[in-house]
Nucleic acid binder design. Structure first.
Lengths: 376, 376
DNA sequence: AATTAGCACTTACGGTGTGTGAGTGCTAAT
DNA sequence: ATTAGCACTCACACACCGTAAGTGCTAATT
């Protein structure tokens, strides 16, 4: 039992640390590639692949048989026992086969998985087609993105609306709705359109409104909310100022994006997985995903991460308790320094990481280039 | 068994017809109020109320005991047997109490339920508050509506985006994004804002675009797509015409609203009901609600119904097979002749119809008045 | 004629028992 | 270091009750 403790003291401790889950950053603990022998890697890889496909514990016999290994089940058993001691796999009860642990999946994702074999060229083209087919607005793009991602990865998809870093006014329009009610339409430099109602103290006709918006457009063009705030300091208390104040609010909420809209799709996919044969778990997961509150911490974290690539958070690595039994695969999309959002997949830890990662990667690239075309 | 067959021959046939479900319109078959004796009504009412509360079959003893009826369980049993013969209730197996049938619920909704006791004044105020608290845009209003409806009625909520009948241009704006790319923002008379990208054959600067939009605004103000189509017939093949054509498309899709957006919320509520202890049913229902295709027929039907009130579709009355085990309660909202959408609740047939109906009613009224304020 | 007491009958439900098959871990042989 | 052999452990499916709940029917009562 203590044989290999001397060989990899770090690894042993690290695994315990992982389970203790301190406040680490997401997807960090890179496992050393050389902590396992080649044969152990091979067996771990097969175990994971088999388990991903069949959803049932993998026996020593199944491994040698299905993959025609030149060793006996007994040998495999010995290796598996070792892998279990190291924490890469477990078994649910004595007479059952092995199932991968979170740590096992992590090792797989980092060292064992052959990449990239996720999406075929054909699939990519199909997806691209759906996006370019119609000139949709942002809202519908994101909805579509969620839907396609979910379908492609056969799991639940999450897409966060792009959040701007530094929204600047491109154009503002005031439209009379009623005597004392006007509709303000704000277009920012990156092409986002927002509408807002403003109720006025006294009646104004369209002509007046047009004048004001023309004036504001020239005065405040390409300014962000901070600059506008400074600019209007000594303005008189007239309508122009009222509008400017609403404009500031508007740009500011755009930047902070408290109303960070999340688009979801494909809940059905994940619930049809065998791990969700238990109704209680279904309810819990559904609740988690529907409320979306699990993502309020994870998405901002992803947005501010300096590492640009795909992030994989496996089971217990999740900070959020409700996501403990699920894995999350995330990628950022957007235009550098201007706007950014997140595309993600949520599913059982037993998922095809390769395909999931490829999907999320591809969709995020696609969304990025679409966003790029939008901006001026 | 045939005793009452002579008394209510129509009712007997009608119930059979119901089960045969021909292509009837929604929520129609009004059951005659006098087909039951007063005591039978009382017993049916109690049975339904008890079942709605407890979710377990109601026994004859429970009825006399809980409601202190001056009759014996045996008498109640006789009456229940009669009610069962008439199709208002059933029992799952010999030694179980009674549960209401779809027909029973319908009778309850039409004659037995005391209305309106749905929402307290306090609840109404709370709801109203949430809507008026912030000046949201349409999108977020509807999302909020779905969320509040679901929470209030403790079931899944469905809200369809308002569909316009006859969208007319209020104002159009062209904003340069890139040299050959412009953003068109269209505001219609009823205050709907839509954005669309237009790619141009040759470069145009903002000044040119402003000119064109000003011209179009005066020429096409308050016209619908049909009128615009006639108007531009002999126009030269310039940019103004290109924009006008896109404008026509835009207004037209607004009217047909193929992209009839549906907002959903509260799936969790309905899945926590005891009728969804079976995982298969959960999946089926979830699939139905997530895909939303079940509503593609039911919502337009509701929109074009001449009956303005709340519609209740109970279990098997649903045309859509996937909704067979659920009830749907719908109300229309909007501004007469201008825009209309639907607010609805979906839940197990065992639901508090009174409260559900009141909720849907109230939210739809609220949305209507909000829409009213928006329009010019 | 309507109501009710009494009772036999039916059926779901929870607990217990069991035997079978899968798969392991260990030991001893290769 | 590998592997054959084997005892051992569990989950799972199935059958087997006993019990409690609630009915329908019959006969007695009002």
């Amino acid at each position: 039992m203590e044989i290999n403790a001397a060989n990899q003291p770090a690894s042993g401790k690290q695994s315990r640390k992982l389970k203790a889950r301190e406040g680490e950053r997401i997807a960090k603990e890179t496992l050393p590639a050389d902590s396992l022998t080649e044969r152990q890697k091979e067996i771990l890889k097969i175990t994971i692949q088999e388990f991903v496909n069949t959803a049932t514990p993998v026996s020593s016999e199944a491994i040698v048989h299905r993959y025609r290994l030149p060793i006996s089940p007994a040998t495999v058993r010995n290796e598996m026992a070792e892998l279990e001691r190291e924490g890469y796999i477990t078994h649910p009860h004595t007479s059952a086969g092995r199932i991968p642990s979170d740590k096992g999946y992590r090792y797989f994702v980092e060292h064992l998985m052959q990449r990239p074999t996720g999406l075929t060229r054909l699939e990519q083209n199909n997806i691209q087609h759906q996006f370019y087919q119609i000139q949709l607005d942002l809202n519908e793009w994101l909805r579509l993105a969620a839907s396609i991602t979910a379908r492609t990865a056969q799991n639940a998809a999450v897409v966060s609306a792009p959040r701007a870093y530094d929204s600047r006014l491109k154009r503002l329009e005031l439209i009379e709705v009623q005597e004392r009610l006007t509709l303000m339409v704000v277009v920012t430099q990156d092409g986002t359109v927002r509408e807002q109602m403003i109720s006025l103290d006294e009646p104004h006709n369209q002509e007046k409104l047009t004048n004001i918006s023309a004036r504001l457009n020239t005065l405040l063009h390409s300014q962000n909310w901070g600059q506008i705030e400074v600019r209007i300091k000594e303005w008189p208390e007239d309508l122009a100022r009222v509008v400017a104040i609403r404009l500031i609010e508007n740009l500011r909420t755009l930047d902070q994006h408290q109303n960070a809209q999340i688009y979801r799709d494909g809940l059905t996919n994940i619930l049809s997985q065998p791990e969700f044969s238990d109704i209680g778990r279904v309810r819990q997961v559904l609740h988690t995903l529907e409320s979306g509150q699990a993502f309020t911490s994870i998405i901002p974290e992803m947005l501010s991460a300096d590492n640009g690539g795909v992030q994989v958070i496996i089971g217990g690595e999740n900070r959020n308790d409700d996501l403990r039994l699920l894995s999350v695969v995330l990628a950022r999309y957007g235009v550098d320094g201007q706007v950014a959002g997140v595309v993600g997949i949520v599913g059982p830890t037993r998922m095809e990481y390769n395909r999931t990662i490829s999907t999320v990667e591809y969709i995020s690239e696609l969304l990025s280039s679409l966003m790029n075309e939008r901006r001026g």
